[in-house]
């Protein structure tokens, strides 16, 4: 018999029950790592952008065109998040800038500890030269990446015309968390029943001051506004 409480179980010892008020984020570990990532990125002199969208809405193509337009004057580095394959990083490297591929092996989002590792590899690739602009292309998913701060300065959510203009209403958390919404593939507007007005209205409900831009990486339409948005945000 247990001497402490008289119960029949030898290995069972009661201790005084203790109630602890914690009041910390369930994501405390990620939040902390994200803060340290942000400091790390700032120490490199860079601004980081987290790109979030469904698979196939044109994140990598946007990056290819952006790199072509800016690579001569801006030092760009890219962290690519995917469940599998090195393909996106290869597409970015083909444009002549350093790219790190993070494969999550099944996870539906990038988190701050993964990006931390990516930043160190990117720093290694720069050989001391540093970066002005770091893009983090998240895993294609309009739900989960919204919850995870990666240490970015700007969060850009892409929505392509073929996906439909009902997406902000259907995926509120992601669009509410955006600093900028980019409507992509607008060269396809004549072929789809896509209402710019609906996107404006629904996104406006979620975040009245949300910035919205429309562009096409194929036709080049609207691309200048995007490039000057980036240029305004650089630490120069």
């Amino acid at each position: 018999m247990c001497d402490t409480c008289g119960c029949q179980l030898h290995e069972h010892h009661h201790h005084d029950p203790k109630v602890v008020e914690v009041n910390q984020s369930l994501l405390a570990a990620n939040v902390q790592q994200a803060m340290s990532n942000r400091q790390h990125i700032e120490k490199m002199g860079a601004v980081a952008i987290n790109l979030i969208s469904s698979p196939g809405s044109g994140k990598t193509t946007l990056l290819e065109r952006t790199i072509e337009a800016m690579r001569d004057t801006v030092r760009i580095g890219v962290i690519e998040g995917d469940i599998e394959t090195e393909r996106d990083a290869e597409r970015i490297r083909a444009k002549g800038v350093p790219a790190v591929q993070l494969t999550t092996g099944g996870a539906c989002h990038l988190d701050a500890p993964l990006v931390h590792g990516g930043l160190h590899v990117l720093e290694h690739f720069a050989k001391g030269a540093g970066y002005d602009l770091i893009f983090i292309e998240n895993v294609g998913n309009l739900v989960c990446p919204a919850t995870f701060d990666l240490g970015e300065h700007i969060r850009v959510v892409l929505l392509s015309v073929p996906e439909g203009s009902d997406k902000p209403a259907k995926y509120p958390a992601t669009f509410k968390g955006a600093d900028l919404v980019l409507l992509t593939k607008v060269d396809l507007l004549p072929y789809f029943d896509f209402s710019m007005e609906e996107v404006r209205k629904e996104a406006g409900l979620l975040k009245p001051d949300l910035e919205l831009m429309a562009l096409s990486a194929t036709s080049g339409e609207g691309f200048d506004a995007w490039l000057s948005f980036l240029d305004r945000r650089l630490n120069r």
Partner: peptide
């Protein structure tokens, strides 16, 4: 129906009971 959601994204560990 022009309702704008406020806050509500919190994920918090409030209290733990242990012994």
């Amino acid at each position: 129906n022009r309702l704008s959601p406020q806050g509500g994204t919190e994920l918090i560990l409030n209290q733990v009971e242990m012994e």
